[in-house]
Design a protein around this nucleic acid. Structure first.
Lengths: 198, 198, 198, 198
DNA sequence: AATGAATGAGTCTTCATTCAT
DNA sequence: GATGAATGAAGACTCATTCAT
């Protein structure tokens, strides 16, 4: 009995998170509306409070879920031989996550880029796994002389992550015109590794 | 009768814009509070409405003022010989504006990075002058073989602008730890031109 | 789950309408205060908005309810033989409604007499059933030569309705001194039918 | 110096009253806007307060002016021989005033018909001169058997005044369709004296 | 566990009124 | 006397949250 209930509970919770992600992505934290989230998810207002203690917590859980989904994606990324192929695999994995869970990723990106004191630490904390993976790849690359060694790998990792995120913003901001999701991983990697100079 | 007023009116208006920029930067559009803006600026709530017809208009005017300040900064940027020095001059000018008018720039950057449909076009429109200057520099650079010519200058310009903005976000997000404003222009240029590869 | 609610909801709605009628009658549309209406009805401000989407809609519903009550009254009026007795029956029925639902009728009368473009059409539309009944009675009276036939029955109906309404105004305006509600129907009919001449 | 000033003062005051009448007639007391009245009259907001101490007082002065204009009209009415011709002369005079000062009369009528406790006494007081003239005519008519003597002339006078007012309401309410101003005096008199019966 | 009616703090906005120039 | 900037009380409306059913 408990088992079924527990499963049902989880289903409802996921449904609420999905809808919350959509609306937080569209309207922002302040603009989003608990009633609307509940209703669109197929429940009544009060139900949200059986699963989350406040709007803030719901938002936090959306962020958290976004990070988990992203992290699962990185884990699934195939490893490559060179730094270039590894980075591209990571970026490709990230874009794959984005395709599946666009609202969650939008919330994550918007929050990362708006550096609100209340949520920035949370975002950073949840982004850390990804950044750490990148950092390790880059550190290895520095050792094998594929990567310039005059900058700390941690800083370079932040740069790569940032460029990826930046391209998402330009993708969404341009209505998908440029860059497209298909070209995005390669563009991120070449921008990061090769630069625009000759 | 009104004689002196003209100037006084402008002063009050500027004071309100300054305070609005601070609070919009800190709290976002929805989170900011007209009453608080007025009070902190040293006026009563109603006074705001003698200068701006609504919260939305006030926000628009803050964005607009931010863009004007930024544009004035670019115009004052010294021209250099090489693409590298020109970009660095532009970035340096931008950072100088940011030092003077941080709240305004924060509003601009946050808005640019949050791609809200209501304001994104406005932001893009006001950012356009800067992007266009960069594009022209890059087009010239492509002609002189300083810049890779396999990508449209307009896209490269968006990339450079984006990287600059991204570094602002990381500057603010890290509490000023990295990158610092001093190193920021050079970092933006080398990231953009040289890449992280060897 | 909601089971009982349906009825309870209607009760609350009626309570709010009653109180709104009282205050709209006393203070007019602009002068009335949603907060006060809610509080006097025994609820909090927000509750009004669970039932009516705006002050305007609430006002419209009050008008609408007033018309329904009035219409129900006419339907219950006994039919007489002569035009005189029929008119008196109608007037008596109208006064009976007024006794039961004075605030609603006050709102209706005040609105009818203040010819505000926003509400006048609504009022006319809702008064129409009554006016139409009167017109039919008068048309029949013209056929049986009880009524002068040198004027369109529709115009005469407007006159009779107007005189009735006018007497309400004088009743309320005089604090109930003259005419009293008891004498009002007969006075309306004799004024309308007989005139003051000899 | 004083004389010119005094005359100028009176001119400004009249201009403000005219505009106030227009806007009170259009928007009602609560809906009207001091700033708008002042501006449309060609002055600044503050000027109104050099002439009237409050919105309420301004409204009262508009009512008062309306009554004065009306009273001046009655005084100018030609006397007739019969009661019928006297009443028609009075009604014609009233309509003439209405043609000249429609906004003032609208304010007066609307206020008379909305029986607001705050203004009703004022309206009654100012309407009294007209009602008294009518009463005297009717009392004389009762003596000469032109008027039924089973009702106090004072009540009959209120009825006649009310019918006249009612026809104004129907005139304005119908957008001038029926009754027209031309037919209005005769209609008022025949309605009052002859009734609709045969 | 789900519901949705009730709540009331909080927000934008209006506008009559004051008063320094 | 005219002006219009400043004021702040007041009001409509929103919405996160609570809780009885």
């Amino acid at each position: 009995m408990v088992r079924i209930s527990r499963k049902a509970r989880e289903t409802v919770r996921q449904r609420l998170l999905e809808e919350a992600a959509i609306q937080f992505a569209r309207d922002g934290f302040e603009g989003a509306n608990i009633n609307s989230i509940a209703t669109e998810a197929g429940f009544a207002k009060g139900t949200v409070y059986n699963y989350f203690s406040s709007k803030e917590e719901l938002f936090g859980e959306v962020l958290s879920a976004a990070c988990q989904r992203a992290a699962a994606g990185y884990a699934a990324a195939p490893k490559g031989d060179s730094v270039r192929s590894r980075l591209e695999a990571l970026a490709t994995a990230d874009v794959a996550v984005l395709r599946d869970d666009e609202p969650f990723m939008k919330v994550l990106v918007r929050e990362a880029m708006s550096f609100r004191p209340q949520t920035y630490p949370l975002v950073v904390q949840h982004l850390a796994p990804f950044v750490d993976v990148v950092r390790d790849v880059l550190a290895a690359g520095a050792a094998s002389s594929e990567i310039r060694s005059d900058r700390p790998p941690a800083q370079l990792a932040l740069l790569f992550t940032g460029i990826l995120t930046l391209l998402y913003v330009q993708h969404w901001g341009s209505g998908g015109a440029w860059p497209t999701l298909d070209e995005l991983p390669a563009l991120a990697v070449t921008t990061f590794l090769d630069g625009a100079g000759t």
